[in-house]
């Protein structure tokens, strides 16, 4: 490309009135495709994302449409992938890197944490690093300890990064478009078990703003704060609890950093009870941050019971399917935890 072409497109979901049934993976692919058609500065790089189509088939077909220049297969070199994205982002491109499993983000940590996150601030606000790192996280596939973690809290701890965790196909598409258009480094965590989940997704291009928590289900009795895979589990649990007369409100932060905590605090003030659910290990997990935001705010005075966390067990993810299931909150666990908090106050 000799000169960069950027076309104007609709930015509002209102313009995308029509919807199509598609999976979470297809919605992400749709976002990539629409954005790459709009802006020639956007390109993809990562392992096996070209003709192979990505380990989870998310980029399938993009190589055929955009070619090897813009869908760049890399060697197995995660630090170089991250660094190449940073250098390109600093000099006028808008890279979207794929790290095949989020566990491998450990191999990018210097580039992401010491470089990408800090560059703008330590250069006095005079540079920008508009890049996205897409990466699948989570357990449930039998991939065991090195391919199943939920490490989002590591990244949420770092000023300068943005951390996004979509829970539905429509959110995945709109949030990814927002992430690509954002001028900051964004870590975009896709849950492996969500890839095949199908739902209505607005057609065409639209932005779901970052740092905007969503009320996924309105309720009066108890607040469940959940993100990523825990949102559909919390919604299914809420459906069952409704039959018992417990009216659950489900809040999905969607972006962990910078966190929009207002809808969470408002919900807690309304219900007086809150269960925070995530797959990641509890100690040092993001649920602790949400709990602290609640107890440090005036929402504390509205609490009828202690803040409850329902989180991953303090173990590496095991291989055996029974152990694997037991290591992370399931729908039944959410039902039990919410019921007990409402009925017994603990």
């Amino acid at each position: 490309m000799a000169t960069v072409q950027v076309s104007e497109t609709a930015l509002s979901a209102n313009d995308a009135a029509l919807t199509t049934e598609m999976t979470y993976a297809e919605a992400i692919r749709d976002a990539l495709k629409l954005e790459m058609r709009r802006d020639e500065r956007i390109f993809l790089l990562g392992e096996d994302i070209g003709i192979y189509g990505g380990a989870f088939a998310v980029t399938r077909g993009l190589f055929e449409e955009f070619g090897a220049e813009r869908v760049r297969d890399t060697p197995i070199s995660e630090a170089a992938i991250a660094g190449a994205a940073i250098g390109a982002a600093l000099t006028g491109m808008r890279p979207v890197a794929e790290i095949q499993f989020s566990d491998f983000m450990a191999l990018t940590m210097d580039q992401l944490v010491n470089q990408a996150a800090k560059i703008r601030y330590m250069f006095g606000g005079k540079a920008k690093v508009p890049l996205v790192m897409r990466t699948p996280l989570g357990s449930g596939t039998g991939a065991a300890a090195q391919h199943s973690q939920s490490l989002e809290a590591w990244f949420a701890h770092v000023p300068g990064l943005k951390v996004v965790m979509p829970s539905s196909p429509a959110d995945a598409k709109g949030l990814l478009i927002a992430a690509i258009r954002d001028d900051n480094p964004v870590v975009f965590f896709e849950h492996k078990l969500l890839y095949r989940v199908k739902a209505a997704v607005p057609t065409g291009s639209y932005v779901t703003p970052l740092s905007q928590s969503a009320v996924k289900r309105a309720g009066q009795d108890v607040t469940v704060v959940a993100f990523s895979i825990m949102v559909p589990r919390a919604l299914a649990a809420a459906q069952r609890l409704a039959d018992e007369g417990i009216d659950v409100e489900v809040i999905d932060p969607r972006t962990l950093r910078p966190l929009d905590d207002t809808p969470i605090l408002e919900s807690v003030k309304k219900t007086g009870k809150v269960v925070i659910v995530h797959e990641a290990v509890g100690s040092g997990g993001f649920g602790g941050e949400i709990a602290a935001r609640i107890t440090e705010s005036d929402a504390f005075h509205y609490l009828d019971a202690p803040v409850r966390r329902l989180v991953g067990a303090e173990v590496p993810i095991p291989f055996n399917p029974n152990l694997e299931r037991a290591a992370v909150p399931q729908e039944d666990d959410i039902v039990t935890a919410v019921r007990r908090l409402v009925r017994e106050g603990r």
Binding site: M1, A2, V4, F43, E69, A79, A80, A82, G83, A84, A85, I86, G87, A88, A89, L90, T91, G92, M93, P95, D110, Q111, N114, Q115, I119, F123, A127
Partner: peptide, 26 residues
């Protein structure tokens, strides 16, 4: 000047990204 770097070896992958940017923008 893409910047000094407090991490030994931290700038080498970034330089590759700059090279990639130069290449893609011809």
């Amino acid at each position: 000047n893409i910047g000094a770097n407090g991490i030994v070896g931290g700038g080498i992958p970034i330089a590759v990204g700059v090279g990639l940017s130069i290449h893609m923008q011809q």
